[in-house]
């Protein structure tokens, strides 16, 4: 049986080897990183263009939008880097190669996800961190020890929310042949995470806060640092949302894994 320490050590060993093997494809790494750079900044570009014509977006200034966006970029990085293999579940399930993950004395989700480590996601992470530093400087945010701790906790739970949504969507592959659209939709929703939730009301606000809580990926946690006085108590539930959602996702994964019987008799 493996302890947490065992898993962490194993992860480092596997990924070190994986990265070494991938680095042989230097050109691919550079071009993908450039592609990642552009794609991650596209929506920010749209905000920038819009904010050239209006003073603020639902009361949020450009610099605040940049802060939220940077938070978003950092929060989605763990999903991008560590859980990228989720996109291939449908191929492995269809071709029967998913069986091999049952045979090792390892947690299956760990084993499956550890087979891919998305290097280009690091570009997004670095750009996100740079932007966050820049924006918080411009906004004169005072980073006390408490604030920093809060930042890490909220980033952690935001990452969990994003991971949960994508992995849960990818589990559709266990039951449906044409499962890609589910992932496609989940991925599209991610694009709306850096939007200020205050522009929404009614059904949309409800859906993005309680149903598929993309609001917790960037906007709500950012409020803690941008408008601490206006913060609703909801925000302090972020870690619970993150952990709760991941528990649900893990349950879905387990159900999927148990129902998969492979192809052939």
């Amino acid at each position: 049986m493996q302890s947490l320490a065992d898993y962490i050590r194993l992860y480092f060993i596997i990924e070190a080897q994986y990265i070494k093997a991938r680095m042989q494809y230097r050109a691919d790494f550079i071009i993908s990183s450039i592609g990642m750079f552009f794609s991650s900044l596209a929506t920010l570009g749209v905000f920038w263009v819009i904010l050239e014509s209006v003073p603020d977006l639902a009361g949020w200034s450009l610099m605040e939008m940049i802060f939220i966006y940077a938070f978003y970029m950092i929060a989605i990085s763990p999903m991008q880097i560590l859980f990228d293999h989720a996109w291939n579940i449908r191929f492995h399930v269809r071709e029967g190669t998913f069986l091999k993950y049952y045979f090792r004395p390892l947690n299956m989700m760990f084993y499956y996800m550890s087979e891919m480590f998305d290097l280009k996601g690091l570009t997004q992470l670095l750009v996100g961190i740079a932007l966050l530093v820049y924006a918080s400087n411009q906004l004169n945010i005072d980073w006390t020890f408490l604030r920093l701790a809060l930042l890490l906790i909220t980033l952690f739970s935001a990452a969990l929310v994003q991971i949960s949504i994508i992995v849960a969507a990818s589990c559709a592959a266990f039951w449906v042949i044409d499962s890609y659209p589910v992932l496609g939709l989940a991925w599209k929703l991610r694009e709306f995470s850096p939007y200020p939730m205050s522009i929404f009301d009614g059904a949309f606000r409800f859906a993005f806060t309680y149903l598929i809580p993309i609001g917790f990926v960037a906007f709500y946690p950012s409020q803690l640092f941008l408008r601490p006085e206006e913060v609703s108590p909801l925000i302090y539930f972020s870690p619970i949302v993150g952990i709760g959602l991941f528990t649900i996702t893990y349950w879905i994964w387990t159900k999927g894994v148990n129902s998969y019987t492979g192809t052939g008799s």
């Binding site: 977006l57 499962s179 890609y180 659209p181 589910v182 929703l189 522009i199 009301d201 949309f204």
Partner: peptide
């Protein structure tokens, strides 16, 4: 499935766009 989700996805996008532009035209 793709058909159904495609429509849903597009409608969600329309909703988001509606709110976004509504807010932009606030002033």
């Amino acid at each position: 499935f793709g058909f159904l989700f495609g429509i849903v996805g597009n409608l969600v996008y329309l909703g988001v766009a509606y709110y976004l532009w509504k807010s932009i035209y606030r002033y």
